[in-house]
Computed example of a mutant assay.
Amino acid sequence: MDTAAIIVTVVGLILAGFVLWYFFFSPHQTASAVSSSSGVQEVDITVKGGYSPNVIEVERGKPVQLNFYRDEENSCSEELLMPDFSIRRDLPAFQTTLVELLPQQAGRFEFTCGMGMLRGAIVVK
């Protein structure tokens, strides 16, 4: 291998490592749901290149309202999938979409965009 091939290989490995870290090991923004006077746990989530916050902590057995505000037109973020709750929603750009659910069991439940690239989780305690 000549010098140029070695440099290209090293840069490629560094970029691949960064992509793996970004999608799987980067720090997550965690938010605990806030209970309203009616007992509904609410969380506001901004969708812009990802979900912020992307980890939501809620209590089991209490209704949850997630307010997804999609602050972009990127086609990847136009759909929300929550397979464990049988929820699929379209997220219109620059609008808030309400998602209501009632978690009955404790655990970690993943949600994604329609392409599976944007990821988040609901942690039920």
Score class of each variant (00 low, 15 high):
1 M>K: 13
2 D>E: 13
2 D>R: 05
3 T>S: 10
4 A>G: 02
5 A>I: 05
5 A>F: 08
7 I>H: 10
8 V>A: 13
8 V>I: 15
8 V>S: 12
9 T>C: 12
10 V>T: 15
11 V>F: 09
12 G>E: 01
13 L>T: 12
13 L>R: 11
13 L>W: 04
15 L>T: 14
15 L>C: 11
16 A>F: 06
18 F>P: 06
18 F>E: 11
19 V>K: 00
20 L>K: 00
20 L>R: 00
20 L>C: 02
22 Y>W: 01
24 F>W: 09
24 F>T: 11
25 F>V: 01
26 S>I: 00
27 P>N: 03
29 Q>M: 02
29 Q>K: 05
29 Q>T: 06
30 T>A: 12
32 S>I: 04
33 A>F: 10
33 A>L: 05
33 A>D: 09
35 S>I: 00
35 S>P: 00
35 S>C: 00
36 S>L: 10
36 S>K: 07
37 S>V: 06
39 G>H: 03
40 V>R: 04
40 V>E: 03
41 Q>W: 01
44 D>K: 11
44 D>W: 06
45 I>E: 03
49 G>H: 05
52 S>I: 07
52 S>H: 07
53 P>F: 02
54 N>E: 12
56 I>F: 08
56 I>N: 02
58 V>F: 00
58 V>Q: 00
58 V>I: 01
58 V>A: 00
59 E>I: 08
59 E>T: 07
60 R>Y: 04
60 R>P: 12
61 G>P: 08
62 K>E: 10
63 P>M: 05
64 V>N: 01
65 Q>R: 15
66 L>E: 10
68 F>T: 07
68 F>E: 02
68 F>S: 04
71 D>P: 03
73 E>S: 14
74 N>P: 05
75 S>K: 13
76 C>V: 15
77 S>G: 10
79 E>Y: 10
81 L>A: 06
81 L>Y: 08
81 L>W: 02
81 L>T: 05
84 D>N: 07
85 F>H: 11
86 S>D: 14
86 S>A: 13
87 I>S: 12
87 I>K: 11
88 R>T: 15
94 F>P: 13
94 F>W: 15
96 T>F: 11
98 L>C: 09
99 V>M: 01
100 E>F: 00
101 L>D: 04
101 L>K: 00
101 L>N: 01
103 P>H: 03
103 P>Q: 03
104 Q>P: 03
108 R>H: 06
109 F>E: 05
111 F>L: 04
113 C>M: 01
115 M>Y: 07
116 G>E: 00
117 M>A: 09
117 M>S: 10
117 M>F: 03
121 A>F: 03
122 I>F: 10
122 I>H: 05
125 K>R: 15
